[in-house]
Amino acid sequence: MSPSVLDIDLIWKALGTITDPEIPVLSLVEMKIIRDVQVTRDAIRVVISPTFIGCPALEQMKSEIRARLAGIGFKQVEIETTFAPPWTTELLADDAKEKLRSFGIAPPPGGEGELIALLLLPVACPFCNSQQTRLDSEFGATLCKQIYFCDNCRQPFERFKPI
């Protein structure tokens, strides 16, 4: 079936059901990894931007995008990876950040600014909301996370890296 402009809502809805393999509470649309969808005469073009360039989940995301669109009848899908504009944590909406927090991952700070300045902001514990926290490891279990420790509730937690 060749896509029509009328299908665009259907396409976004289907894409909105694909969750991030590393953060299952958010969809690729909420993560703003899927940046744009264009419907041309004989194909659907999906533009994605990786959170981190070396993200190993990227291939899985691409195959899920193809599978989901095939599931609603679209077999001709082109996926383009873009770095311009780059994916940044500023793209995450407040409700997406709240979902991260409720999943136990401290969300990245909002607002624009130099990365270094964002890194100096206090980080609230996702479990008890205390700001008595400290950086334990600059790197974490996936490229997009780092490890903190909460001195109030005495628990380690993950934090989404501002990028």
């Binding site: 070396g54 279990a141 490229l143």
Partner: peptide, 20 residues
């Protein structure tokens, strides 16, 4: 362990940059 995680992450980043 923190350095193990760090250098594994950095390796993954650098390989991604290489691919780019």
């Amino acid at each position: 362990i923190e350095e193990d995680i760090a250098f594994s992450n950095i390796a993954q980043d650098e390989l991604g940059h290489s691919l780019a």
